[in-house]
């Protein structure tokens, strides 16, 4: 299963990641981090839809997203 991990203390809530997700699973949470930003998240129910495409991490200016890709997905792609 591919997945992403948002390092919430690094997220500045710019939401650029939400605009590039091909399966539209990234959204703004209601959680506010120490810097005062509402952080991005992927709901647990949606994580299995992640394709591991790395688009969100690529456009994130704050290195707040790490991406794991399932090896199977990679082969399929």
């Amino acid at each position: 299963m591919s997945r992403i991990l948002v390092t919430e203390e690094r997220c500045k809530g710019c939401l650029l990641c939400t605009t590039v997700c091909p399966v539209s699973i990234i959204r703004q949470s209601e959680r506010i981090n120490q810097q005062g930003y509402k952080v991005a998240e992927v709901g647990a129910e949606d994580m299995d839809k992640c394709t591991g495409c790395t688009s969100c991490a690529t456009i994130c200016p704050d290195m707040a997203i790490q991406v794991w890709r399932s090896k199977k997905t990679k082969k399929a792609a």
Binding site: C60, P61, M63, I65, V67, W68
Partner: peptide
Amino acid sequence: AAGEELVFTRPASLADRATHYCPGCHHGI
């Protein structure tokens, strides 16, 4: 974990710290 690979993470030369840049600023990229 087994069956997955890390395909996007911080490069070693980039410090592991928050930047002073504003939200959405492209300097970070």
